[in-house]
Amino acid sequence: MSNKPVSTKIDLSNLKAGGFIKERGKDLFTVRLRVPGGRMSVPRLKKIAEVAEKFGGEFVHLSVRQSIELININFKDFDAVVEELGEATQKVASCGARVRVPVACGGCEYNPNGLVDTQKSALEVDQKLFGTATGHHKFKVAFAGCPFDCPKSATNDVGFQGAIYPQLDKDACISCGLCAKNCVPKAITMGADNKPVFAEKPCIWCGDCAKVCPTGAWSEKKRGYTVRIGGKWGRNPLVGTLFATFLPEEKVVDFIAAVLEWYKAKAESLGRIRLGDVIIREGASALLDHLRKQFPDNAVAATIPPQVIETQVGIRS
């Protein structure tokens, strides 16, 4: 009989992508599962429930960024948990200075408010950019399907908000006035001829006019994402500001990659710093000019730095 201690074998490559988070006390970890856009197939949900029951505590936690977290997982069970979840289909989610799993609303397939397919965008970003090391700090992306913006897109490093630019076919209009009535920012009013008059400036591109129009006289001229950059929450919140409009859905990954490229280069030697704070240091036009080179049709003419939110606790020097 040997008294030699038994050493635990763990495949450390499973830890590299992050997603194993140490809990209070001894040996126990939270395993954060990757649920891009918050969409989870029912069979996968069942599988996760089985694994949670076998290895975890009495509950799972639904994180504020739409992932499912298995609680009270003993580190000795890491490999078994990864194996049983089926690593290929259910990768654990990241933590640390990486591109995080994107958050998204339900999108446009079943939600009548959704203007763009946020689920598709979230999945694409997750597949192509998830886990990319930033070298500096975390990097969060969110997709909102419309300007109601349930996912609070502007509180992310890059936030996307679905938008449509409306156009009117006057001949198809029956002068019901519903568009003017529904237009919250009052971009549409009824003219003397009892037809709608559109003012461009107040319009937030929510598409309510097209959604409510009984005859389809209002329709979309163009569609895409309104993009705000440099947001974050936490101790010193910033709200991201406008860098691009009507960005086509198929350009989302390239756009984020261009932002990441600038972030990596400009934050060199600054240590652990979020994108918004780098923009404040460098000036918003530095990033805007960089993006305009690759996205001339979508970059805005000018913008402002991320907006500091006064939390009223702790005086910032």
Binding site: P112, L178, K211, V212
Partner: peptide, 11 residues
């Protein structure tokens, strides 16, 4: 009601 119902019936 007038904002929602016509839109839903159209859909």
């Amino acid at each position: 009601p007038v904002k929602n119902v016509p839109r839903s019936l159209k859909a």
